[in-house]
Design a protein around this nucleic acid. Structure first.
Length: 584
RNA sequence: GCGCCGGUGGUCUAGUGGUAGGACAUGAGCUUCCCAAGCUCAUAGCCCGGGUUCAAUUCCCGGCCGGCGCACCA
């Protein structure tokens, strides 16, 4: 056994045992892409299913499945075309690559260089004679290159329209908001979940499946009324959490151990919805096998927050000595919906009915077009609009005989009677509001990695070293290993029959009859199979088998008849092995 | 993208200017064996391209991939 880090040993185990490995290896591989092997795909699927159960089904939200390729306008609206774009400049002397916009911001009094077009950034660099922060070489006249983190493609042949692989699953939900809102019968709050792939052309993918170019997200977009009631915090109020607020990070302060209820009450977590999901997630992460001692919530620093987020907390896990982001809990405000409304011209609002209809006075005009038409010709429309705006803004302007409006710098005098000015009473039943978005966004691949890393164990059984994965039975990719005690036609036939019955019961089963029994236990230990069933000679007589638990290696004897239901209950967590063992 | 280091069976690794050895794993068999036992046999490897050379897995250059550091991570 090498004395490498857990990360190295885990990566090696993952390769060998079919959890995950570099993709397209026969052609040399390509950075940032991984294939989940048979065990990995099953584990990932189980985690996704667990997420779906908790965040979609148990919360009463809907789930959709949107395309991974979307047309350019979507990302113009979302801000990814602009904001996902880095301006890089490469030093001709030392070869260092630096962000051109950062260079400008540091070296001049420009504060938002990112919004400047590239030629202008180049001009500013030349003007101020900015130099390379690494070696000091002048960077005037060095080309600034654009690098967008989105993968681009063309949709259709010929002069087709540009498209992009989505950099987050969220946009697929936002874009369909009008229809989804209709489906939810326009009642806030409602949530839409999605589990799917997202793509980012990372400059430098690292650390196996922690940072890849194609990854799976599980996201929930909860649409809430900005003035509406918050969540019922009662179910999560007492959930203990470990918080690392922005203030503590800034001044080297301590992490905070508190509860969701207290953190929301004292304002550490500003938004109750964000707090609610942090509480739900805390318990969920523990249930699927994240070690609570290596888990925390870290608030984003002001400069770290995305353009849309007013407050954001990350769930982080500690793996191999580093904290990595597992999930983000962001309040996105109305940012996404109002941008899509503006860019698409569609309505991204929900009508909120007042408890009592309100009566309001409204000033309006009803111009006599038979007079304005002939008088202003093609400008008549603009004149009417000017009148409407004026009526809305300044009723007093209509107090006299005539009213004056400016259209394209020209003043026009119009009879108030011709304008058709009147103040009317109107009954308003409600108003259109753009919902705010609360977004819990989970990285599935990183969770797979964390769950494996936190489950990795080495111990000794009867003086022999053992490696095993203490995965939660509910998410373990293989539920049961079934063996004949030794090679023997009668034992093998019985064991195969047991395996068949367990599979018919919906359990994923590995059958293994090779080598010695101890070796087969170890093999299953290493992939994290929680239970193994061994058929021996006595089984043929007493219709009972040995069930062995992975972590303790304890064994109990169970009737074959009861096996499927008992193992299913053990897997679901409805029964515990300890209880079986002590009753045996 | 830059710098340093590296790339040999499935995995981990030894080694060499004349195409490679081990360990573990895997498969077949023997051993009536509930925690990696033993024995026999078998399968299986020098990242890719170019250069130097009679000859390259080995030396040189480039690429790809990986680790670490920097940068990046809306």
């Amino acid at each position: 056994m090498s004395d490498g880090s857990t990360g190295e040993k885990l990566t090696e185990l993952a390769k060998r045992r079919g959890y995950f490995f570099r993709s397209s290896g026969v052609y040399g591989g390509v950075g940032g892409f991984y294939t989940f092997g048979p065990q990995g795909a099953a584990l990932k699927g189980n985690l996704e299913e667990a997420w779906r159960d908790r965040f979609a089904v148990a919360e009463g939200h809907m789930e959709i499945d949107a395309p991974t390729i979307m047309p350019e306008p979507v990302f113009e609206a979302s801000g990814h075309l602009e904001g996902f774009d880095d301006m890089l400049i490469e030093c001709p002397e030392c070869g260092a690559t630096v962000r051109a916009d950062h260079l400008v911001e540091d070296g001049t009094d420009h504060e938002d260089a990112e919004s400047l077009p590239i030629p202008e950034v180049e001009a500013v660099i030349a003007e101020y004679a900015l130099s390379c922060p690494e070696c000091g070489a002048g960077l005037a006249d060095v080309a600034v290159e654009e690098f967008n983190l989105m993968f681009s493609t063309r949709i259709g042949p010929g002069d087709s329209q540009p498209g992009y692989l989505r950099p987050e699953t969220a946009q697929g939900i936002f874009v369909e908001f009008p229809r989804l809102s209709e489906y939810a019968r326009n009642k806030l709050p409602f949530g839409v979940a999605q589990i799917g792939r997202a793509y980012r052309n990372e400059i430098s993918p690292r650390r196996s499946i922690v940072r890849t170019r194609e990854f799976t997200q599980a996201e929930l977009e909860l649409f809430v009324d900005p003035t509406g009631d918050g969540p019922d915090l009662e179910p999560v109020a007492d959930v203990p959490v470990r918080l690392y607020p922005a203030s503590a990070q800034a001044d080297g302060g301590e992490e905070l151990r508190t509860t969701i209820g207290e953190a929301v009450a004292d304002g550490t977590i500003a938004d109750p919805w964000v707090g609610y999901f942090m509480g739900v997630a805390q318990e969920w992460y523990e249930a699927v096998g994240v070690d609570p001692d290596r888990f925390r919530y870290r608030q984003h620093l002001a400069g770290e927050r995305a353009h849309y987020a007013s407050d954001c907390w990350d769930a982080e896990s500690e793996v191999d000595g580093n904290w990595i982001e597992l999930a983000g809990f962001a309040h996105r405000g109305a940012y996404d919906l109002s941008n899509h409304a503006e860019n698409s011209g569609e309505r991204f609002t929900v009508f909120r009915q007042y408890d009592e209809p309100k009566t309001v006075e409204r000033a309006a005009v009803d111009p006599d077009m038979s007079e304005l038409g002939p008088r202003f010709g093609a400008d008549a429309g603009a004149v009417v609009e000017a009148l409407e705006r004026l009526a809305d803004r300044d009723r007093a302007a209509f107090d006299g005989e005539t009213v004056t409006v400016d259209v394209d710098g020209e003043r026009h005098e119009i009879d108030v009677e011709t304008a058709g000015f009147a103040v009317e009473e109107e009954t308003v039943a409600g108003e259109h509001v753009t919902p705010h978005v609360i977004e819990p966004s989970f990285g599935v691949d990183r969770l797979v990695y964390t769950v494996l890393e936190h489950a990795y164990r080495e111990d000794e059984v009867d003086g022999e070293p053992r490696t095993y994965l203490a995965l939660e039975p509910a998410v373990a990719p293989t539920a049961v290993g079934v063996f004949p005690l030794q090679r023997d036609d009668a034992l093998e036939a019985e064991a195969r029959k047991v395996a068949r019955e367990l599979r018919a019961f919906g359990l994923s089963v590995t059958y293994d009859d090779s080598g010695a029994i101890g070796r087969r236990y170890r093999r299953q230990d290493e992939v994290g199979t929680p239970f193994c069933v061994t058929v021996d000679y006595e089984s043929l007589e007493d219709r009972a088998v040995t069930v062995r638990e992975r972590d303790s290696t304890d064994q109990v004897r169970l009737p074959i008849d009861e096996l499927p239901a008992t193992l299913a209950a053990l897997r679901a967590g409805d029964r515990s092995f300890e209880e079986l063992y002590s009753n045996n």
